[in-house]
Nucleic acid binder design. Structure first.
Lengths: 382, 382
DNA sequence: GAACAACTGAACAGATCTAAACAATGCTGA
DNA sequence: TCAGCATTGTTTAGATCTGTTCAGTTGTTC
């Protein structure tokens, strides 16, 4: 591999994950840590990343849309000041964009920032402008945003609806009637295939759950709890993967292993109360591990365990689902990381492929599923 | 090889993979490193690439087009980048391919020729060599072909297994152990996700069946027969789509509407006998339309109808599934056309994206579903 | 705050890459 | 046929990069 390629990979890793760990990266690439460190030093000198103890974090990019998405951990050492104004690429300055793509996301706070970053990166790479609308999980707001963007003459639209199903979404009519290509992100279009000309890109959460389960099963766990936010569109798919993985090793799903967190928006104390109750159930049933959907809940869960003197991972293993903040707990949590960035990137790419004449790619409508990965941290091993 | 060709190859390598390693490239081409370096120096002087230690990297291209450098129509040698010098290059001499991709298909007689053509087109567009093996639906032959191609050092593999499931295919071990990227075409990898690092591209036959059903339902048909070749991997998915479409309009699947053709390989008279019997059942049950999987059967079916004086489409509507030869009957048949060509094209494209360096596309493993289209002919309307 | 683990960077050795110089090859035109 | 020229391969010294070791630093835990 070329030195240049290696450095490119480092930057890519940072774009994708926001941070990079020297030891882990070196091992994965089959190179020495010293080499990685030398690269990091050089790239920092160019102002392309920021070194921290143990690795590096992404530099806030001077990209177009101004959403700040810094690694929340970013603070770290003060003694490494980025060098004075490392070369800034003049790249595509005020180029007239090829096209404008609208993007309607349910949230800009959790999960979707990374999807948005992916779409931004694709937009930058492909020279198009991206316009974002956030619906805050409100169906009417969603409708309004879509209407606004379509009326403003965007050349394509990326949409993630609040609910999993599009079938009874009033915005579906808008989408069906639209004359621009539309790509649905992270949602199913199975039940509306013939009502609108849509394409989709999504994380394969069924597979994500399977990956988590296989990890736990490999570690010897047999009695594994599942703890889902029922209100989330993702829940049913995660449960499906959980069941498939159980079934594959001849185990049956069991009601004493399946727990729901009913309301996501409630106050922290309420959430904690729910989790304490779930934890009671789990301990009574003698389970040894859990998959907890949503990092926030998983962190709270870990917290409750530690408060009770349950050691993680010795007494109980925990896998979080989403990998937004799973690394930041007292015990860094092993987590399933859906390919959020890639979903955004590909969604934009697919949408642009349909703009104008469909150059290049295939004419058939696509549905793309992207596999999550498992990031192993200390809540399951050692 | 001509000097000019060699330089063209260098540029193509850069366009395709983003970077080039002198030692590796020289060996692959059977030339000395010094020669490559001299070429690189020259090309850098022309501003056509950027040298780095160990090789060169692509120059950021002027146009924002970025990703897509292939003209979809550009089958024949597309010299779109007029080289500075005047001399017209003699059409691609003995160009050394960038990579060689192996392809193992169950048949080269029905359905798969179009898939193969798609892969061929992609191979031509992307400048790689495609090597084909046909298994004739024999598992042992399949194993042998895969083994042969891997041993011969292909850089990637496209495989369509004989059976729908890979889970109990002995070749799975080969695929899992292979060190080159592998893309499965037209088959499911759901049940082997964690046993091998695979990607997949397939026609969405569930949706294909739904499209056919919606067409018939729109025409006012309510009692619609389904006639499948049970031995085909496609059958179960088509049935699923059939049931979903029925369910959506509040109808239940009914055993008197579901027919199977048991043996595909038998003599024409046997097939005809089966179809006559099915037709008896359909007439007895008072059905008004049918979806018949496999064009061949559908043509035979139409023939039987006509022989009995059943008029198509007036008395009975018929939709064929596959659209290989559906247009060639006495009555041209409306048919569901799976995106065979696109499946082949995309499969090769995805495979090549994983070859060598991982630039450009997303890292997450992909599963792509492509929607069939309905080709309306005179067996359902007018 | 002491013990411990993990990380960092200097220094050196070995591997790999580069380019100059020269030799070998093959084509061109007299 | 042969000199002249362009292209390519080989050799070699020096430049650059990479891995290892090790002492010192930073961060964590108790």
């Amino acid at each position: 591999m070329l030195t240049e390629d290696r450095r490119g990979l480092i930057l890519r890793e940072l774009r994708l994950r926001g941070s990079l760990n020297v030891a882990e990266f070196a091992q994965r690439m089959g190179i020495s840590g010293m080499t990685v460190r030398r690269d990091l030093a050089l790239l920092e000198e160019q102002g392309r990343l920021q070194r921290v103890h143990g690795g590096a974090v992404a530099n806030p990019e001077p990209g177009p849309a101004g959403i700040d998405h810094r690694s929340p951990a970013g603070a770290a050492g003060g003694h490494r000041a980025p060098l004075p104004a490392g070369r800034v690429r003049p790249a595509s300055t005020t180029q007239v964009p090829l096209a404008t793509i609208g993007m309607v996301m349910p949230s800009a706070a959790y999960y979707f920032p990374t999807v948005i970053r992916g779409a931004e990166a694709a937009a930058r790479d492909l020279g198009v402008r991206l316009v974002l609308g956030v619906s805050n999980y409100s169906a009417t707001e969603e409708h309004r945003q879509i209407e606004r963007l379509l009326a403003s003459g965007v050349d394509g639209l990326l949409v993630t609806t609040s609910a999993e199903s599009l079938a009874d979404n009033p915005a579906l009519e808008l989408l069906a009637a639209a004359e621009v290509p539309i790509v649905i992100a992270e949602r199913s279009i199975d039940d509306v295939v013939d009502r609108a000309r849509l394409e989709s890109v999504r994380s394969d959460h069924v597979r994500g759950a399977e990956i988590a389960m296989n990890h736990l099963l490999d570690l010897g766990h047999q009695r594994i709890a599942l703890c889902l936010r029922e209100s989330s569109p993702t829940a049913s798919r995660v449960r499906e993967g959980y069941r498939i993985a159980l079934g594959r090793v001849g185990l049956m799903p069991d009601p004493t292993m399946d727990y729901a967190i009913t309301d996501a928006r409630s106050a922290p104390e309420v959430l904690r109360g729910q989790i304490e109750k779930i934890l009671d159930g789990i301990m009574d049933a003698g389970l040894t591990a859990a998959i907890v959907h949503n990092d926030e809940d998983a962190l709270m869960f870990a917290d409750c365990c530690l408060a009770r003197g349950i050691r993680i991972p010795e007494d109980f293993a925990l896998v979080a689902y989403d990998d937004e903040i799973a690394s930041l707990g007292a015990v860094p949590l092993t987590a399933v990381a859906p390919p959020k960035y890639d979903v955004g990137y590909q969604a934009l790419q697919m949408c642009l492929n349909r703009v104008g004449s469909w150059r290049g790619t295939s004419a058939a409508l696509q549905q793309v599923s992207l596999s999550p990965t498992l990031v192993v941290r200390s809540s399951t091993v050692r």
